[in-house]
Design a binder for these strands. Structure first.
Lengths: 160, 160
DNA sequence: TATTGTTATACTCTATAACTATA
DNA sequence: TATAGTTATAGAGTATAACAATA
């Protein structure tokens, strides 16, 4: 457990970047990310889709068609839950079931045009609110966040 | 909504950081935050508490006791839903209902010790995984993220 | 009468267990 | 027999509407 007596926010400049991470209280890191999580959650119009439904659509959008069982593992739900989720997405025209020519047992799921449009609209709404919030931050804070975006994307690439 | 060819909000102030934000595609911003959201979600042990339950506990931890109706608004659920959520938290020993001496109608909710410990444990688990992920990033990326944490905290402070 | 909170009822989403079809 | 997916059933969590208690 890290010592909390030292202020972790502003490590002295000129020290190596590795030291910067080592000096940071891990819990501080977790709390900051936790707070960003909550921020995004609050900025997102809940609509009528569950968090898992949206996340699944985004997976299909970013990484193309997946087997139903792969989606279940990736989203951390059971296979029956994913079966029903895909059924709902299909019913609403947001995704489609396809057959796998090589294996008759397999169901391949892909995102439909309406699904892409829905993600786009949600993203647009959140982007606007986020931009407004950022605009009210001090310029130095804005710069720090913008500068960190590529790194955050690479961090997200490491997601298991 | 907005024309994408023109930066609408901030007239250039002649400072570099402002231009940095203006030049940034808002959607890129939203996507990065969206991905951080998913990352945090995946790193968090689901346990047996709902997202709203954890979020409510964190509100009580960070900002002290609240009225039940305040919590409902803050967490974006209805009053009946919050009634039941608080009942579950109380049943599990994570929070407590208290009376308001000044107004007999009011229920004040506060976090219990077990609730604090639960948040601590969750945070610890996520912090460890997050730290490991960060450690595998290039040093420059780590530095950029660490440098942005105070700004991200101030952004989170603006959460409605 | 307005405000604060609870109870009643219905719906969505999820998990576990049992089942079907293909390999 | 194992794998991929579905169906059956039960429980958690939420919303709307109706209710009780206090101001």
């Amino acid at each position: 457990m890290a010592e909390t007596g030292i202020a972790p926010s502003d490590p002295p400049a000129g020290i190596g970047v590795v030291d910067q991470l080592d000096q940071l209280d891990r819990t501080e890191l977790a709390i900051s990310f936790e707070r960003v999580f909550t921020l995004v959650r609050r900025l997102t119009p809940q609509g009528d889709l569950s968090l898992t439904a949206v996340s699944t659509l985004r997976t299909l959008e970013r990484q193309g068609p997946h087997r139903l069982s792969e989606l279940a593992v990736r989203e951390g739900v059971t296979q029956p839950a994913m079966t029903q989720l895909v059924s709902r997405l299909e019913r609403d025209g947001l995704a489609q079931r396809c057959a796998d020519p090589g294996d008759g047992r397999v169901v391949v799921v892909r995102i439909a045009d309406a699904g892409r449009e829905l993600l786009l609209a949600r993203r647009e709404a959140r982007a606007q609110k986020l931009y407004e919030l950022l605009s009210s931050l001090p310029p130095a804070d804005r710069a720090a966040i913008v500068a960190a975006l590529p790194a955050l994307n690479r961090l997200a690439d490491l997601t298991p």
